[in-house]
Design a protein around this nucleic acid. Structure first.
Lengths: 178, 178
DNA sequence: GATCGCATGTAAGCTGTTACATGATTTA
DNA sequence: TAAATCATGTAACAGCTTACATGCGATC
């Protein structure tokens, strides 16, 4: 259910189209709730049926026309209620770590390659997060709005650094394993 | 799909009942793929239909009889294929961080309370992980099998420590916010 | 000429959750 | 006497993924 509230929260800041929202939410980097384009369109439709948001058709020349969604007072109330509630517990789906849990069935080379692959991925993600950081620190916003952007980003950076540390230690441990 | 392979991997180590497996997989602590009891029973049925696993009824006195599942050669082949494949990318569902992303709509006290709540949760989880660690380090197993248990656990500990660090910094930042 | 970006969506299927049902034994 | 543990499961629904369809304009 948090996907709907994620979208509501974004619409509460600015009116946006399904296309805009799906770009924000589909990149793993920079967000804490990933969803596909299809899911975004489906959720927007549901929320519009429920009266939380309203769409406005915008005609464009040279580009397909688009539906700009706005949040309604009912949507704002629902959003604030969700925001004040204690958060649902996170769902863990980390296929790589599941594979590591069964690493005893692989040979040394295979294990090392798997870890190196994941390490490269996290190094890239860390870099993307750090590039993104500049925008926020430089932004001329009220302190609270600044925090709302920088604290989750800071978490992203810390987690990527932790991943990389783990990979380095794991590679060393596996290498020593004879 | 990784849930089925998680269960297969566990069955490959030891025959188990749905009840046993659901206990392992439903505690967030200590595993990287969480699932409910219902889902475990459903997945076991599917895998049995597919011929990956076989069940054996075990009658007990004073307790309900149980179905002990064993992995079949077909199941072992499917499992090893999955294990060698590059892992699927993880799915991020972190409702707490989504709420933090919209923290500008809450007042200082509410934000501090939310963070303290999550901090306490992670401190508890860290403790559980650390208690769990003793068993593994002390275990008298071959190095590879030992790694399969200790590396993912080590990751869990590092991530919990990172969460706590983030919470401490976040609390300090919010407090300084006037 | 092919692919990418813009922009919307449907259909089918798979995965996951919540609530319920049963029933004996053990512990508080 | 109430609740927890053992042990299995069904039904209904909600959430999410994959594949497909459309069509224009711009870039390679």
């Amino acid at each position: 259910m948090s996907l709907e509230f994620t979208l509501l929260g974004l619409l509460n800041r600015n009116p946006r189209t399904g296309y805009d929202l799906s770009k924000i939410v589909s990149r793993t980097t920079n967000f804490y709730w990933t969803a596909t384009q299809t899911q975004v369109y489906q959720s927007l439709k549901k929320m519009a049926d429920r009266g939380w948001i309203t769409s406005e058709t915008i005609l464009q020349t040279g580009k397909p026309s688009k539906l700009l969604y706005h949040i309604n007072p009912e949507g704002q109330i629902a959003f604030m209620e969700w925001l004040r509630d204690p958060p649902d517990s996170p769902t863990m789906k980390e296929p790589f770590m599941v594979q590591m849990y069964f690493l005893d069935l692989l040979d040394k080379e295979e294990i090392l390659n798997k870890i190196k692959f994941i390490q490269a991925m996290h190094e890239q993600r860390l870099q993307e997060f750090q590039e993104y950081r500049g925008n926020i620190v430089a932004a001329d916003k009220s302190l609270k709005e600044n925090m709302a952007r920088s604290l989750p980003l800071k978490a992203g950076i810390l987690f990527e650094e932790t991943w990389i540390t783990w990979c380095e230690q794991a590679l060393a441990d596996i290498n020593e394993m004879i």
